[in-house]
Amino acid sequence: MIGTGISVNSITARRRHPLARLAVVALALGLLGGGYALFAPSNSADAAIASGKADDVAEGKSLFVAHCSSCHGMNAEGTPMGPPLVGVGAAAVDFQVSSGRMPAANPGPQMQRKPLGEWVTPEAINQLSAYIMSLGGGPQRPSAEMVDPAKGDAAKGGELFRANCIQCHNFVGAGGALTYGKYAPNLNESTPEQIYEAMVTGPQAMPVFNDSTITPEDKRNMIAYIVQMRELKDPGGFGLGRIGPVTEGLVVWIAGLSFMSLTAIWITAKKRKK
């Protein structure tokens, strides 16, 4: 205040005005709310409420309490058993629940893909997503167009796939081992949407590839590559799991050498003299 030319006394006096506290609170709330409305993703919980999906949030909460709260806490605040889910977004909910990884069957190094429970319907996932979004936003689920393999450039996606994914997921997404019992799963069962969501949310041991690391368009290219590779018919015969020389070695020893030994025994066999 010194050197600004404004009387210190007058500010102090205004601060002590009976309505000053109210004004400051109003200003702060206004800035926060207004700022949030300006910068937050447009279709957040507010939007859900505005478009008449408030019920989804309530339904989602009851689903959450029934199926998720024992590990993640009654308000998704997290417990020693499971992380807080505030801010993980609809993408994480859809990835984990639609792949059967959540609700978890049993705690282990890593949650595994498994058949879906009876209550897991697209509608239930939407409701859970709405509830989680209402808690603190987070990455959204991609639109159908964003993950349409037909719209991607597979060759370009392949280069990105080799640079970013294969060190864990193998050349063609056949999966691979990680440390401490964790593993990078086989990508053959993942839907394009799940692949996208895994990239933006980084589930379990996987790092996050957000939009500044890999643009949504490049993500679609990668999805195109993954999908085309798993649909690619092996031109050379049986693919042997597409995991490289390990199965080739097994085949040459088990099939190749057994065949050679059996034929050797056959052509040197003699009738025993009685």
Partner: peptide
Amino acid sequence: LFGPYTPSDISAGSQ
């Protein structure tokens, strides 16, 4: 399936 060699890339299950 493996792709061309680039010194910066490596795959899981390289044997």
